[in-house]
Nucleic acid binder design. Structure first.
Lengths: 232, 232
DNA sequence: CGAGCTCTTGAGGTCATTCAACTCAAGTGG
DNA sequence: CCACTTGAGTTGAATGACCTCAAGAGCTCG
């Protein structure tokens, strides 16, 4: 049970535009829970009983088939996951595990659907969030189908650089094995790919990345807002 | 301009639950248009001025980067496309072209967003549709990252067989070059993949497919509802 | 019947994976 | 304090998957 004393949750885009009454109803059956690192939160194939909202930490959304596993996306605060399964009252398509200590709000799916019908502000927020998720996955698909692994890595680095205000030097926010999985390659191949990008001024040491010639790297990577941007 | 005399449109899932008044408003600025085959409808990067609803025919949603092109998905009636861009008032992430003669309803994006706020039934339908689109792309991503080209083809064939009530014999509904693009491979590789699947009872002649041993093919392809089903 | 397709086939190369060994850094426990 | 362990990351060699380029086969349609 969760009362309205969590301004960090109330002020999320998803909840900001709804009435106090609707918010109270939504939170009546909700939990705010803190999980240790490397804990399984959900398993693909299960029913989507709860909408999850990540408030703090980070979560890996991954999927398995035939003894293979791949990371579909990494969730950072503040965002929801498995919104689509909640809406459709369907089964999870991805599993989720915490990567670090994480704080998560869990809202019963049925309540989400109920309040959606009652509160137009919430409905609009859900749709906007969902549309953003959709566009993000489309970009992932384009990235996978139109680019080689090397190109994906180059664009990933440029994208992280942009996140740091275009800094030439920054730290990877993922373990390399994890990054490899997100980019759709093996850890070994990632290692070689980093070496191959030395030709474009990329130097990596541990988690530290140095892009000494961003212009040259961009000439190779050809980033585009239609694949690489996170917003819109 | 489109009056309410198109029951085929009015009865679409997306519009079925809305009031007559909202529907009338929505259709006030809408067009119902018929396009010849192989016509470009939209180009990625443009602003999403219209929501498109495919009533008849088929449409290819594709994307380009660096002189490469890939088919992201094929739209069959009755469904919408670029709903997410419409919602977010953003730019198209994909281009669209007709594959055959197609009838399409085009609704101004602004009207869609307006009516969304006014009509709860419509809002709910939009969200359900969008969630379905999202889940479908997630499945595409999993398919691409977890399976080899051969496995993707095998599962595609099983999926088409299911569409025909589990028939052993059916016709491909796509040109092979198009199918190759959807599956993320080259036409040449598709050709070879068909040959490789002969070992599992697959025979192809022109557009005709014969699956003489579905059990054996399934043992290889390992289909799962978490990747291969179209619904839920 | 020839023009223009798609589709197929072959040869060769590139990209990426597998498997195994090795490095390195960070604990752990004697 | 130092071996021992552990796990991530790297490197190498061999293999496999997939692509490119080029040419030929089979279709369809005027």
């Amino acid at each position: 049970m969760l009362d309205s004393t969590f301004p960090e949750v109330r002020s999320l885009d998803l909840f900001a535009d709804m009435s106090d009454e609707s918010y109270a109803k939504l939170m009546r059956g909700a939990y705010l829970q803190t999980f240790p690192p490397h804990v399984d939160l959900i398993t693909e194939g299960e029913e989507a009983d709860f909408l999850h909202v990540l408030v703090l930490g980070s979560v890996d959304l991954f999927s398995s088939w035939n003894n293979r596993e791949t990371s579909v996306s990494i969730v950072k605060p503040v965002s929801t996951f498995i919104l689509a399964a909640t809406i459709r009252d369907a089964r999870y398509l991805m599993s989720a595990r915490t990567m670090e200590k994480s704080r998560i709000v869990m809202i019963p799916s049925q309540d989400v659907r109920e309040i959606f019908d009652l509160d137009a502000g919430f409905a609009r927020a859900v749709v906007v969030e969902l549309a953003a998720c959709y566009r993000s996955v489309i970009k992932t698909t384009k990235n996978l189908k139109l680019r080689t692994a090397l190109e994906r890595l180059a664009n990933y680095l440029l994208s992280r650089s942009k996140d740091h205000n275009g800094a030439q030097h920054f730290a990877l926010d993922l373990e390399k094995r994890q990054l490899a999985s997100v980019l759709g390659m093996t850890p070994e191949n990632l290692s070689r790919a980093f070496k191959a990008l030395q030709a474009y001024g990329v130097a990596v040491s541990g988690e530290n990345v140095e892009l000494s010639d961003i212009t040259e790297l961009e000439k190779f990577a050809k980033p585009t807002t239609l694949i690489d941007d996170n917003q819109t």
